[in-house]
Amino acid sequence: MNPNHLKQLAVIIKQGSISSAAEQLFVTQPTLTRAIKQLEQKVGAPLLTRTRYGVVATEIGERLGKVGEKILLDAEQSEEIIRQWHSGFHNEFTIGIDPLWEYAAVHQTTHAFLQDPRYVFHLRTGSAAAQIELLLKGELDFIIGPAHLTVAQRGLHREVVFRDRAAIFAGARSKLISQNNDVMTSDLSRSKWFIAGANAGFMNHQHNVAPNNAAKISFTGSIHSVMSLLKTSEMLVQLPARLALMSGALQPEQMLNIKDMPSQPRRDIALWSRINETERPDALRIRQLIFDLLQNLDQSTPEFGLEL
Rank of each mutant, 00 (worst) to 15 (best):
residue 159 E to R: 12
residue 201 G to K: 15
residue 280 R to A: 11
residue 286 I to C: 05
residue 41 Q to W: 00
residue 38 Q to I: 04
residue 15 Q to F: 07
residue 149 L to N: 10
residue 174 S to V: 06
residue 244 A to H: 09
residue 175 K to E: 15
residue 140 L to W: 04
residue 247 S to G: 03
residue 159 E to P: 05
residue 48 L to K: 02
residue 94 T to N: 10
residue 196 A to M: 06
residue 246 M to A: 14
residue 269 I to V: 15
residue 119 Y to F: 15
residue 285 R to Y: 00
residue 279 E to H: 11
residue 307 E to Q: 11
residue 174 S to E: 14
residue 239 L to A: 02
residue 251 Q to P: 02
residue 219 F to K: 02
residue 179 Q to C: 07
residue 42 K to P: 00
residue 79 E to Y: 14
residue 108 Q to S: 08
residue 106 V to Y: 07
residue 247 S to H: 02
residue 300 S to T: 15
residue 42 K to S: 10
residue 231 K to R: 15
residue 278 T to S: 15
residue 267 R to M: 15
residue 19 S to G: 05
residue 217 I to M: 05
residue 258 I to D: 01
residue 240 P to A: 01
residue 142 F to P: 11
residue 276 N to G: 03
residue 124 R to G: 02
residue 131 Q to N: 14
residue 80 E to L: 14
residue 195 I to T: 09
residue 25 L to E: 06
residue 52 R to E: 11
residue 198 A to W: 07
residue 200 A to H: 11
residue 16 G to K: 10
residue 159 E to H: 10
residue 141 D to V: 14
residue 62 E to A: 10
residue 51 T to S: 11
residue 263 S to P: 05
residue 264 Q to L: 13
residue 2 N to P: 11
residue 20 S to Q: 14
residue 274 R to Y: 09
residue 112 A to C: 08
residue 140 L to A: 02
residue 70 K to T: 11
residue 301 T to I: 08
residue 5 H to I: 03
residue 61 G to M: 06
residue 172 A to P: 12
residue 272 W to K: 08
residue 21 A to M: 08
residue 242 R to G: 03
residue 149 L to T: 06
residue 204 N to D: 13
residue 108 Q to I: 04
residue 34 R to L: 12
residue 270 A to T: 06
residue 117 P to W: 03
residue 50 R to Y: 04
residue 298 D to C: 00
residue 58 T to I: 07
residue 306 L to E: 11
residue 27 V to K: 10
residue 83 R to V: 04
residue 95 I to G: 01
residue 220 T to N: 05
residue 263 S to K: 09
residue 2 N to R: 14
residue 168 I to E: 01
residue 36 I to M: 10
residue 31 T to R: 12
residue 185 T to I: 08
residue 81 I to K: 15
residue 161 V to P: 09
residue 65 G to P: 09
residue 221 G to Q: 06
residue 38 Q to N: 13
residue 144 I to Q: 04
residue 251 Q to I: 07
residue 233 S to L: 04
residue 240 P to F: 01
residue 265 P to Y: 07
residue 94 T to W: 03
residue 52 R to M: 06
residue 88 G to S: 03
residue 47 L to C: 00
residue 251 Q to R: 15
residue 306 L to G: 01
residue 41 Q to K: 09
residue 86 H to S: 00
residue 305 G to K: 07
residue 250 L to W: 01
residue 219 F to P: 02
residue 275 I to Q: 15
residue 66 K to S: 09
residue 52 R to Q: 13
residue 42 K to I: 06
residue 199 N to H: 10
residue 140 L to S: 03
residue 284 L to W: 09
residue 304 F to C: 00
residue 283 A to T: 05
residue 10 A to D: 02
residue 4 N to F: 01
residue 99 P to D: 01
residue 233 S to Y: 00
residue 6 L to F: 02
residue 22 A to S: 13
residue 186 S to A: 13
residue 124 R to P: 01
residue 268 D to R: 07
residue 79 E to G: 12
residue 59 E to L: 08
residue 241 A to K: 13
residue 267 R to W: 14
residue 72 L to Y: 00
residue 65 G to H: 11
residue 102 E to D: 14
residue 237 V to L: 00
residue 191 S to L: 08
residue 132 I to L: 13
residue 15 Q to T: 12
residue 224 H to V: 05
residue 95 I to E: 03
residue 305 G to I: 09
residue 120 V to N: 12
residue 249 A to E: 02
residue 38 Q to V: 05
residue 127 S to I: 01
residue 164 D to Q: 09
residue 268 D to I: 08
residue 278 T to I: 10
residue 93 F to E: 05
residue 99 P to Y: 04
residue 163 R to M: 10
residue 255 M to I: 06
